[in-house]
Structures are given as C-alpha cells and as structure tokens.
Amino acid sequence: MVYIAAVVAVVITALVVGDDTRGAAGDPFGADQAIRYIVFLTVGYMLARGLAKAGSWARRDDHG
C-alpha cells in the first residue's frame, strides 16, 4: 500500500508542479523525471521483497 501511495504521490506531484506557464525555465518536475522516480521506487520495492523472501527460512512443505 505504501508503494502505491508513493507512486500516486509522484504522479500527482508531476501533474501539479510546473503548471505555471509564467516561467521560461520549463517544467521543473516533468514526466521524464516522474517516470525516473517511479522506476526507482519499483526497483527499491522489488529489492526489498526479494530480500524479505530470501531471509525467510520456513518452507510451505516443512512440518515443524
């Protein structure tokens, strides 16, 4: 749930930040940067899940 909330927060931030058309510098937080942060979140989530699964010694067929 936290991963989904973080991705939604990145998307909302990308939509809201930079809507001001007065500045000539362009969008400070555009779609390309939002995608980059979503990829970072995804890789971090997959690594965390992999480490959690690798750290568990119990197997389903173990009778203990």
Rank of each mutant, 00 (worst) to 15 (best):
G18R: 02
G30I: 06
V16W: 02
V11P: 01
D32C: 09
R60Y: 05
L47F: 13
G50W: 02
R22S: 14
D62N: 10
L47E: 01
V10I: 15
Y45V: 03
A9L: 08
G44I: 11
R59D: 05
I4D: 06
Y37R: 14
R22L: 07
S56P: 00
M1R: 09
F29W: 08
V8S: 08
V2L: 06
V11S: 02
V8F: 10
A25N: 10
D61F: 08
D32M: 15
D62R: 11
T42M: 07
T42R: 04
L41W: 04
Q33N: 14
G64F: 07
K53E: 10
G26M: 12
M1H: 12
F29P: 02
T13H: 01
F29T: 05
P28V: 07
V17H: 01
R60H: 11
A31H: 06
A52D: 12
G18Y: 01
A31P: 04
M1I: 00
G44E: 02
Q33A: 14
L15N: 11
A6G: 01
D62P: 00
Y37D: 13
L41H: 02
G26P: 05
T21Q: 13
G50T: 13
V16C: 03
L15Q: 09
D20M: 06
V17R: 00
A9V: 04
Y3D: 00
K53G: 06
A24R: 13
F40C: 11
A58S: 14
Y37Q: 10
V39L: 14
V11M: 05
M1A: 12
G30F: 05
G50M: 05
V17M: 06
A58Y: 11
M1P: 03
D20H: 07
V2H: 06
G23F: 00
M1K: 08
Y3P: 01
I12H: 03
V7S: 05
G30M: 10
A25C: 07
V43G: 03
T21H: 10
I35A: 15
F40P: 01
D61S: 08
D62F: 07
G55H: 02
L41I: 15
R60L: 06
V39Y: 09
A58E: 13
F40Y: 15
I4W: 00
L47Y: 02
Y3A: 04
A58R: 14
H63M: 03
D62V: 03
G50S: 13
G18C: 04
G55A: 13
L51R: 08
V17Q: 01
Y37E: 10
H63F: 03
D20W: 03
Y45C: 07
Q33Y: 04
V43C: 06
I12K: 08
Y45P: 00
D32G: 13
G26F: 12
D62G: 00
A48N: 07
V7C: 12
Q33F: 06
D62S: 09
K53R: 14
A5V: 04
G55P: 03
V11D: 00
G55Y: 03
A48P: 00
V17I: 15
R22M: 04
G26D: 10
G26C: 11
A5R: 10
V16H: 02
A5M: 08
S56F: 04
A58H: 13
L51N: 06
A34H: 01
M1T: 05
G18H: 01
L47V: 15
A31G: 09
A48E: 02
D61H: 11
G55E: 02
W57Y: 07
D32Y: 07
Y45D: 03
